[in-house]
C-alpha cells in the first residue's frame, strides 16, 4: 500500500474538531491555513501564546516589510516557497532590548548577510539582531516561534473554534 502523508496547504486543508465538556476558549483551537487564508499578507497572527511567548502565522504574498527582533526567532514554512533575505543592522539600529519582532520603517541600512529559500517543512533561523524580509512569488504560509511584540496580531475570537 502506497504511503500518503497528509499535509495541509492554503488550497487544501481540513480542520479537525473539538468536542469537550469544557470552555473551548481554554483550548484556543485553530488551523494555521485557515488563519492564513483569512489574513492580509504579512499579518503576524498569534495562534499560540505561553505568557510572553507566541507562535505567529503569516501569509507571505510578495515582498514583506523588514523586521528585526532582539532574540532568535524561527520560521517553519508550512506551504509554498519563501525567500528570507537578511541584512546585518548597524549596531546603532539594532534593538537593544525588549521582545518580539518590530517592523522597520523601510529597507535597512547594513551589509547583506545572504538569503535562504525554504519550502514546506523547512525551518529557518531568524537570528537575533538581523533584519529580515519574507518574499514569495505565490501565497505561502509560515509559522514563527517568537515572543509577543509590536507586530503580533491577537484576534482569538476570530480564529478559534468556539
Amino acid at each position: 500500500m502506497a504511503v500518503q502523508t497528509r499535509f495541509g496547504s492554503l488550497g487544501s486543508y481540513e480542520k479537525g474538531s473539538i468536542e469537550l465538556n469544557d470552555d473551548l476558549k481554554h483550548y484556543a483551537f485553530s488551523n494555521m491555513f485557515e488563519v492564513a487564508s483569512k489574513s492580509k499578507p504579512f499579518e503576524r497572527v498569534a495562534v499560540a501564546k505561553n505568557i510572553e511567548y507566541v507562535a505567529e502565522v503569516t501569509k507571505v504574498d510578495g515582498a514583506s516589510p523588514w523586521y528585526v527582533a532582539p532574540h532568535d526567532e524561527f520560521a517553519i514554512v508550512m506551504d509554498g516557497e519563501i525567500e528570507f533575505n537578511f541584512v546585518k543592522l548597524d549596531p546603532s539600529a539594532a534593538p537593544a532590548g525588549g521582545q518580539g519582532a518590530k517592523q522597520l520603517a523601510g529597507a535597512p541600512n547594513g551589509q547583506k548577510m545572504g538569503k535562504v529559500r525554504g519550502r514546506r517543512g523547512h525551518q529557518v533561523l531568524l537570528p537575533a539582531g538581523a533584519a529580515y524580509q519574507f518574499v514569495s512569488k505565490s501565497p505561502s504560509v509560515a509559522v514563527i516561534q517568537t515572543l509577543l511584540g509590536p507586530v503580533t496580531v491577537e484576534r482569538w475570537s476570530d480564529i478559534c473554534t468556539l
Binding site: 486543508y13 473539538i18 481554554h26 483551537f29
Partner: peptide, 12 residues
C-alpha cells in the same frame, strides 16, 4: 471529551 487535530491545527 475528544479533540481531533488534523494537519495545520493548533490547540492548547
Amino acid at each position: 471529551g475528544i479533540i481531533v487535530m488534523k494537519a495545520g491545527d493548533v490547540c492548547a
